[in-house]
Structures are given as C-alpha cells and as structure tokens.
Simulated assay, not measured.
Amino acid sequence: MSTPAIDCEHVTHRYGDFTAIDDLSLTVGVGETMGLLGPNGAGKTTLVRLLTTLTPVQHGQVGIFGLDAGRRTMDIRQNLGYVPQQLSIESALTGRQNVDLFARLYDVPRRERRARVDDALEAMQLLDVADRLAKTYSGGMVRRLELAQALVNRP
C-alpha cells in the first residue's frame, strides 16, 4: 500500500476550553478527493491549518505524504500550494513582489526565484500587470494572484 497523502491519527486541537477537533482519525490516499463539510466551529479551518503546518499539532499525529507535520514543516510547505479563505495579498506591494514574498516563504532557491515568480504570474495571465500595485487589481485578478502565490513553489 502506498503512503497516504494525508494521515491523521487521534488529532485533538483546543483553543482554551473550546475543542475545535476531537480525536480525529482520517486517511486520504494519493489521488483521492476529499471535502470538508460542517457548520461554523466544526474545526474545518483548524484542520486545514494543521495540514498546511500553519498551526502546530497539539495532540495526535499528522502526516502529509509520509512527512510528520510536527517535525517536517518546511518540507511539507515546499510541496503544498495553499490559497486561504481570507485574502493573503499585500495591497501595497506589486503583484511580482507578492509572489516573490511567497517564494521566499516557501524557500524557493534564490537562483530559481525570479524565473519561478515569472512562471507563476504567466500561468495566471498576470505577467503584463506584475509590476502594478496589487491594490489596483480587480477582484478576479487578486484571486489569480493568490493562485500564483500558491503555485510559485511548484507543489
């Protein structure tokens, strides 16, 4: 059997007295599609933040393609593309600067960074406006810029 894409075992996460995730065990195989459904406060966002290593694992085990989310955060981040629900662009930066910032956060090697930023912007059809401030972008352009940020590390 191959290594699962996602493997959670007995995951619990609390915010003070509030339990957002309570003893969750979940396995998602490579190539499978999974959806998270539930009411507000059900722990969906918390789980996504755990899977993307943006929130540390408190209790249990979280594995992404066989990598321990508690110990291999940068290795996991280099292999994921993540577009958060809330806007993640900095409007005072250009589109290029926004994508470059994510390239640095994903630890894209310096010698590859410029080409990767341009490739991501081109893939989202933003290369021609890359040097404009992000605050001048339309709503659709902002969402494409966020996709470019998620793709710059070639997940």
Rank of each mutant, 00 (worst) to 15 (best):
Met1Thr: 12
Ser2Gly: 08
Ser2Arg: 06
Pro4Asp: 02
Ala5Tyr: 14
Asp7Asn: 12
Val11Glu: 08
Tyr15Val: 10
Thr19Ala: 11
Ile21Thr: 09
Ser25Ile: 07
Leu26Tyr: 01
Val28Met: 08
Gly29Met: 00
Leu37Ser: 07
Gly38Thr: 07
Gly38Tyr: 05
Pro39Lys: 10
Asn40Cys: 06
Gly41His: 09
Ala42Asn: 06
Ala42Arg: 01
Leu47Gly: 04
Leu50Pro: 07
Leu51Asp: 06
Leu51Thr: 07
Thr53His: 06
Thr55Arg: 15
Val57Glu: 07
Val57Met: 08
Gln58Met: 02
Gln61Asp: 13
Gly63Ala: 13
Asp68Trp: 01
Ala69Thr: 09
Ala69Gln: 11
Arg72Phe: 11
Thr73Leu: 12
Thr73Arg: 05
Leu80Glu: 02
Gly81Tyr: 13
Tyr82Pro: 03
Tyr82Lys: 12
Glu90Gly: 02
Gln97Pro: 02
Asn98Gln: 00
Asp100Thr: 07
Phe102Lys: 00
Ala103Tyr: 05
Tyr106Val: 00
Val108Asn: 14
Pro109Cys: 02
Arg110Leu: 13
Arg110Ala: 13
Arg114Lys: 13
Ala115Gln: 14
Arg116Cys: 11
Val117Met: 05
Val117Cys: 06
Ala123Cys: 04
Ala123Gly: 04
Ala123Asp: 11
Gln125Tyr: 11
Leu127Phe: 15
Ala130Tyr: 12
Ala130Ser: 07
Ala134Gly: 09
Lys135Glu: 14
Lys135Gly: 07
Gly139Met: 10
Gly140Asp: 08
Met141Gly: 03
Val142Pro: 02
Val142Trp: 12
Val142Glu: 13
Arg143His: 02
Arg144Met: 02
Arg144His: 05
Leu147His: 04
Ala148His: 13
Asn153Phe: 05
Pro155His: 10
